[in-house]
Design a protein around this nucleic acid. Structure first.
Lengths: 221, 221, 221, 221
DNA sequence: CATGAATGAGCTTTCATTCAT
DNA sequence: TATGAATGAAAGCTCATTCAT
């Protein structure tokens, strides 16, 4: 599993910065942009505000990112790919077929735990992605490339494997996916956005979610 | 069930217009605003564009809505209340206790069908609500007033009733709601936003969703 | 002396209304305009606000006054003429020569008392005149016509009369006027605008002002 | 006495610009604003007009002054403080008590000459102050802070000193001030605003004004 | 590389004025 | 005669982007 996934936010940005040869100022800019945009939204955030928070001149932003939207894309693209990475990563797919997970339930549980950790570490970036996806065609196409073309097929493979194995019912994969994903997303949205301040027993909630999904799609032996 | 719910968009706006004593121009403005904002988002839509599409002078907008945000709120508020209306409407709650629905499954099915029809009729307004909820505290508070204070209690009543009756498992209502709502929303988002152009057998999908949910929360006789 | 002078504000407007054949609505408009403009200034007062306060439709204002500035002029012109009226009124000039006032000091005292009463009764209108005179050429020309062409000559006559009589020094009239007017205006501005809420012994103050002026311009017997 | 006082207008602005670290464009903006506003008034002057006259983009104005009113205040505040400065300046007060002026008449004459020079150099700014004072509470409060709290006490000290010395009558200071100030202001308004084009023997007029005031308030030996 | 003053297009909003009713 | 909805020009202001230093 990618090491990026579970590191806290600024570590992640720093990690990226090395991979992409970012200067210290660039890191500052990205961090400031993530903070402010996730809080107030893209259109309510001015480049001057980002510059101020980052401690750089406004011109410096445009030295590194041709436009304001460029900056948004720079923030949002790695989230899309990272978020979907473990699903289609060779490692995972390998594991599936090396039968590291005896049952689909085990795979599902690992999947939820892993994505939960990622969401926790990348909450601001995910908020931005969620909000801006609707209005920027550039983001939509990245999302489509990654999700539709990569995540989806990987999902299909896994589902076919466990269907054959008899773990899950023989429904169309699209239907199965629509039963698996929303309860997971629903839990996370409630957990991180609607009621972030409530006391949560995350472990228990995730197990419950898995159980709920499995009752719905598991084969009726 | 309110008659408003299932009328198509412009009929709905017209219905509202009579109730609220709107002039023809006001109706045009609201219609134009819904169209453009749902397509491009609030911040990408200028009042001059709305005016042009509505065939009125820009000043006319501000005769009727003090600010641009006022216009947004005027569009979005009735969606929030209408969307939740049938949930807590006296009639529905009454029916529950008059046992018009023998089993929770029946209630759930009616609920999905009804909300599906509403979403279909009010898609543009719902898109706007979904997107702008995050950034406008005024909308958030309307949402909270309506949802938290009215919908939630009504839900609780119904759940308690069918729990006692033995239809559904004895889980905390919050957990139950988190299992019921996301699959429904998930279906609708897929249906109307992600893949609106696919051929759908809506009836079948809704039944499947109900079955899925019931397997997860139904009592294990 | 004109009867208009000492009547309270709305009586004065009503009096004017009869002379000029004003409808009830017109009176209301003028009254509202005087109130609001004197308080907030011409440019901070909108016609819609005047209409609201007057209890008429906005269109009604423009039925009676072609433009907003027309309305201002209608308010301000009679103040200019009324304020200067008693100075050059036939009656007064007559009195001067009929020697109703034995000494210039007596004339001065009557003059101050009379103008004080007028200012008190017409304070809002005078405030408007004072403020707007600077920016509206139309008002300036009315002021010039009245003041320069009528008040001034009348003043000259009186001054010449009492100079000859030996009551006042043989200085150029322009100089004398510049010594007589400012202390009077200065008193009134302090009295009505700078410190209107202080307890004033008006009678005493006016006498003192006369004494002060007379010391300065009286002949040194 | 402050050296600022007697420099001509644009020199003064330039002097200010150095003290306050103004850019060349800022100076241009201030100069243009003073010119146009003093001529046509604050509400008849648009920011676009100021920008045009200053030879800058309209946005540049708002880089330096958050609002149009901010610009007004920036213009008007130093006039208030400079105008009153010499009155309460330590130097002056010191001089009074070091008896540089043997008689109040001498002090008065110096005062008039000095304020006359200041008015001449700052006429446009003073016009603006005079007109806008009525409508902007921010200006009023600056005026009050400076005038009521600083000028007034200084005046009182001087008056008490010369009363005791027997130069002026034992009247309440408020009354004395109301006799001293209006003739001076009256002269200046006539000189600079009502009849600026007339041929004036300023020296003589000022002496005459002093004589007039002294006759009125001087002790009757 | 970094700066930040300058830009100007475009925004929302105001308001005197018009005109069909 | 009175109305008030509609107008549209013009206002103040914002902000992504440029560029000389």
């Amino acid at each position: 599993m990618s090491e990026i996934d579970q590191t806290p936010l600024h570590q992640m940005v720093e990690t990226l910065s090395q991979e992409e040869n970012m200067t210290a100022k660039q890191v500052k800019i990205i961090e400031a942009a993530i903070e402010i945009i996730s809080e107030k939204g893209y259109y309510n955030t001015s480049t001057s505000e980002i510059a101020k928070r980052a401690g750089v001149a406004e011109g410096t932003i445009f030295r590194h990112y041709r436009t304001k939207k460029d900056l948004l894309i720079t923030i949002v693209t790695p989230v899309i790919t990272s978020f979907s990475a473990p699903v289609f990563a060779d490692k995972l797919v390998d594991q599936v077929f090396r039968e590291d997970y005896e049952h689909f339930e085990d795979l599902l549980y690992t999947f939820i735990k892993n994505r939960f950790a990622f969401a926790q570490a990348n909450l601001p970036m995910l908020k931005i992605l969620l909000q801006e996806l609707a209005f920027h065609p550039e983001i939509q196409s990245t999302y489509k490339d990654t999700f539709i073309e990569k995540v989806y097929p990987a999902f299909n493979k896994a589902l076919d494997f466990y269907k054959e194995k008899g773990d899950i019912q023989d429904l169309p994969n699209e239907t199965l996916i629509r039963m698996i994903i929303p309860p997971i997303i629903g839990f996370m949205i409630t957990r991180f956005i609607i009621q972030p301040d409530r006391k949560w027993d995350d472990e228990m909630e995730m197990k419950q979610t898995v159980t709920f999904i499995m009752k719905g799609i598991g084969s009726l032996k």
